[in-house]
Every structure is written in structure tokens, then in C-alpha cells.
Amino acid sequence: MTDDPHPTRRAHKRRTVLKGSAVAAGAAAVPPLAATASAEAAIASTVDITLSVNGRDHDISLEPRVTLLDALRDRLGLTGAKKGCDRGECGACTVLVDGERIKSCTTLAVMRQGSRITTVEGLADGDRLHPVQQAFIRHDAFQCGGCTSGQIMSAVACIQEGHAGSEAEIRDWMSGNLCRCACYQNIVAAVGDAAREMRR
């Protein structure tokens, strides 16, 4: 693996760590991080969970180590959230969980049972776009669209948190979402505009 800085050593992969914590969280009687046959067997087994996404309950069966992002994309077909880095750095996978913005690649699906999850697909009211979605179009706050789902979800939360009071504030509180097309000036304008509209 290219992200292993020590070629001669078997490193802890993030998956290994997640796997350990997931097993622990699932209260299985397996010691975390034990690379034993029984641990492997436990990992290969799946759990049945219910995820509440965009107001609908979904019953799915998955391995405990599956991230919320992969569950949304690969199991539920909700591909609006994107996997840009898979390690919480780019923000393209941002969704709302109980109203708060989180990076869905750094949380496990099994940990989010009983939470209200909102993805970009669930933001519009039927055909009527959310004010943030409208503002993004109006201000041309995207180019390729690769980060846009995450930017929009982050912006919705940013406004609800009360962090959209000024351009400087928006710049700071939207800096967890990278845009490589670098539309930032237009994103700031869109978030500010949407915030004013939502306060009305």
C-alpha cells in the first residue's frame, strides 16, 4: 500500500483500527485489534441495521466496518456524497446527522442507527430546491461538482450554526470543504446570500 510509510513493517491500517473499534462497539467478545482467525470470521459476518436517511428508514445488512459514506453510496445508491479522500480531509462526503455536519467517511454506519441522516438528495422540497442549492446555482459556486454535495451540506449547517454572519466568518467556517476548482469566492457569496434568505 502506498500510504504505508514503513515498507518492511505491517502497519495498522485505518481499516484495522476501525474494525477493532467496531467490533468493540458491537460488544462482541473479541479483543480489539487481535488479528486472529476468530476476529477475521467476526469481521466477515454482517449485521442488520436500520438507517434513517432523508426521512426514510432503510434496513440493510453490512459488515460493521462499513463507513456511513460507503453504506450510503454502495448500499443505498445515494451517490451524492462523494469519496474524495476517505480520511476526513476533503469534506466531499459531508452529510447532516441529527442536524450536525459530519464527514461520513470517518464514521461507521453501525454507529448511526437511530440518527436522522440528511444527504444532498434529501435537501430539496420536491422540485423546489433548498435556498442553499438555489444560491449555489445563482452564484456559480461550483465547477466540476465533485465537492459540491459536501459544500452544500456544510453550508446548510454553517448557516444553522450561526456561522454565516460575515464573509470572513463564512470563509473560516467553510474551510473544512476543499474545492479544487477553487470556486471559493463564489461559494462565500452563495452561502452569504442563502443565509440572508433563510433568516427572512
Binding site: 445508491g77 451517490t79 462523494k82 444532498v120 430539496a124 445563482r138 461550483f142 461538482g145
Partner: peptide, 21 residues
């Protein structure tokens, strides 16, 4: 002019290469 692909991109409807089932 507003981007004609804008709606697809702000709703998650635009299907990128890794999004195709």
C-alpha cells in the same frame, strides 16, 4: 447564463464515473 447542469450538480443527481451502479 446559469449552468445548465447546475440542478444535477446541486441535487446529487449528476452521476460521476464511480457513481454508476
Amino acid at each position: 447564463v446559469d449552468r445548465v447542469d447546475g440542478r444535477a450538480k446541486v441535487t446529487g443527481g449528476a452521476r460521476y464515473a464511480a457513481d454508476n451502479p
